[in-house]
Design a binder for these strands. Structure first.
Lengths: 210, 210
DNA sequence: AATTGTGAACCTCTTCACAGCT
DNA sequence: AGCTGTGAAGAGGTTCACAATT
């Protein structure tokens, strides 16, 4: 047992979760794998395979109950409770995240900004306090921070990572444009808008090439 | 010929590109596939396969010249020239992108913000003008905008998409938390920080589950 | 001696197709 | 009759392993 789940399945569950939210808002009570697939631009077999990994949530001949399925996915993804985040780096990205509506909607709560700049320490940004970076390990424990967000320049990414790991953090979202090294039991996700644009320029470039 | 390139390869090229920049800054002239792999946490065979798709850039026994390889990757990804972006939605995300350093570094130039709010139209944010959303089609041509960025609420994402497509845009970066539909020849990339966090909470949740 | 470039083997993810429910 | 759940087939991506080259 315990077949491993595909990373891509997790991402698709998040997509289904949002599509279901939309359907519920529109007053729809049931949905077929075909409809869901159409909404997200994939195949219905993919939708069913993804869901079947976690259980049988549908009714043959009828489809899925939107509210029920959304709730099941919320449980799978751990979205039935709030999560505490700590953002390292009170620069543009760090501050922008404090205003990010989709985090609030999902109960991802930014408990603290950490920065080494004395001018920033002690201030607050839209209700999020800026703390001294050097006191991060204690504060992570005190504030029950579970997810670390790296929003510092590339040069400092590894140093910040090490400090987060020392502080017991097991999940990191890295906005710095550099790969970071972590122990096996720490999960890292990369977020780099420029890389997404580069995957677009690759294709735009192609049109005029050859 | 013309075997299709894997999407994942494109993303890894962007990673190599950044790692090579770092090596060059450190004064390193050559690098092996092993070193590059180590930096990005993948296998050396993967690095060589990725590169060999586009040509033979290395020297057997010696490795790759860092400057040369970085230049080759820049050409593959279309990074040897600047690209003009237009951002739809002058809210938190749209404004944050105007300050995003990694865009500037890569010569991704935000030529315009588009918004329907009369209070915002005519103002400017750190040098980027806010234009009337209704005049977008003309302005996209006038300003030579090649890449559209969607930074509006989910409800408006498809409407904005359609308008971008009508205006001749072939590449879209979508920050709205909703899937969008485009013709086959238009490339879309999704950027949703919450989804990345959800792929982390899935794993965090697991530790306490079962 | 070291390291690339690559066909073949391997593995993982997606799609097919249909039996099984409702 | 309609739609799910899933084993099997197919497609796609990664790793192995080694000949080729410097």
């Amino acid at each position: 047992m315990d077949k491993k789940i595909a990373e891509s399945t997790i991402y698709r569950l998040s997509r289904y979760y949002r599509s279901l939210g939309h359907l519920i808002e529109m007053g729809q009570d049931t949905v077929s794998s075909d409809d869901l697939a159409e909404m997200d631009g994939i195949t219905s077999a993919q939708v069913r395979k993804d869901l079947s990994f976690f259980g049988s949530f549908g009714k043959r001949g009828l489809g899925y109950n939107t509210r029920l399925l959304r709730q099941q996915i919320a449980e799978i993804l751990g979205l039935t409770r709030s999560w505490n985040l700590g953002v390292v780096g009170a620069g543009n990205i760090g501050r922008a995240l404090c205003d990010y509506q989709e985090f609030k909607r999902q109960n991802f709560i930014i408990k603290a900004l950490f920065d080494a700049d004395p001018d920033k320490i002690g201030t607050d940004y839209h209700g999020v306090k800026v703390y001294d970076y050097h006191k991060m390990p204690e504060l992570i424990k005190e504030l029950n921070i579970e997810i670390g967000v790296i929003a510092v320049p590339a040069e400092r990414a590894q140093e910040v990572t090490d400090k987060l790991v020392e502080s017991g953090i097991k999940a990191i979202l890295n906005f710095a444009p550099r790969s970071i090294k972590v122990p096996e039991d720490v999960k890292v996700r990369y977020e780099n808008m420029a890389i997404e644009v580069e995957s677009l320029t690759y294709y735009l470039r192609e049109r005029f090439g050859k």
